Amino acid sequence: MAEDPNCLICASDAVLERGTAFRFEIPAEPRNLPAFVIRYQGKVYGYINACRHMPVQLDWREGEVFDLSGHFLICSLHGARYLPDSGLCIGGPCRGQRLLPLTTKEANGMIYYVKPITAPVRPNPESTE
């Protein structure tokens, strides 16, 4: 039986429009990756919680990733501003780069992280094994 690629993050009502981000971790080696989901214009978006300028988490206070206007995600360390719906940096030292997106799914009142499907490792054609 195949492993379910969907990992429950939280209930849909835990992520309010332009509100506090819901933080979670993605299992990874050698350590888990911090991540968050937000709701913007009615849709849920997920990103790795790391600024593209320096690998620091965006939020100074847990889940506070929107600027005061609610129109941009902002890095609390140096003020890089990102579009919530694409992760594109439109201001700051990493202008033109993007936050690393996550595939999310909202169904039956819950929000899920959809794990990427990795291709099977192909044997090396030059190998004698």
Score class of each variant (00 low, 15 high):
Leu100Arg: 05
Leu58Lys: 08
Arg31Cys: 10
Pro116Gln: 03
Cys94Gly: 02
Phe66Met: 08
Arg31Asn: 12
Pro116Leu: 04
Arg95Gln: 15
Trp60Phe: 12
Lys43Ala: 13
Met54Lys: 14
Leu68Ala: 13
Leu58His: 08
Arg95Ala: 13
Asp4Glu: 10
Met54Arg: 14
Ser127Tyr: 07
His78Lys: 05
Tyr45Thr: 01
Ala11Glu: 15
Leu100Met: 07
Phe72Arg: 14
Arg52Leu: 09
Tyr82Thr: 02
Met110Phe: 11
Leu16Thr: 14
Lys105Val: 10
Glu126Gln: 15
Pro101Leu: 02
Gly92Thr: 01
Ile48Cys: 05
Trp60Val: 08
Ala2Lys: 07
Leu16Ser: 12
Ala80Phe: 03
Leu102Ala: 03
Glu106Ile: 09
Asp85Cys: 13
Val121Trp: 03
Ile90Gln: 08
Thr20Cys: 14
Gly109Ile: 12
Gly19Val: 04
Gly96Asp: 15
Tyr40Ala: 10
Ala21Asn: 07
Leu100Thr: 12
Leu83Thr: 13
Pro84Gln: 10
Leu77Asn: 10
Asp59Pro: 05
Pro30Leu: 07
Ala35Ile: 02
Trp60Ala: 06
Asp85Asn: 15
Leu83Trp: 10
Gly87Asn: 11
Ala28Gly: 00
Pro93Gly: 09
Ile111Asp: 03
Tyr40Cys: 12
Arg81Met: 14
Gly70Ala: 13
Ile48Ser: 01
Lys105Thr: 06
Ala21Tyr: 06
Ile117Trp: 03
Tyr47Asp: 08
Thr104Lys: 02
Leu83Ala: 13
Glu106His: 09
Thr118Asp: 00
Gly79Pro: 02
Leu58Phe: 10
Ile48Met: 07
Pro116Ser: 04
Val37Glu: 04
Met54Pro: 00
Ala107Trp: 01
Gly70Phe: 11
Ser76Asn: 13
Trp60Pro: 02
Gly87Cys: 12
Asp13Phe: 09
Ser127Asp: 15
Pro55Ile: 11
Arg95Thr: 14
Arg81Ile: 08
Gly92Met: 01
Ala119Leu: 13
Leu100Ala: 11
Glu3Pro: 00
Leu102Phe: 07
Cys94Lys: 02
Tyr40Phe: 15
Ala28Arg: 03
Arg122Tyr: 08
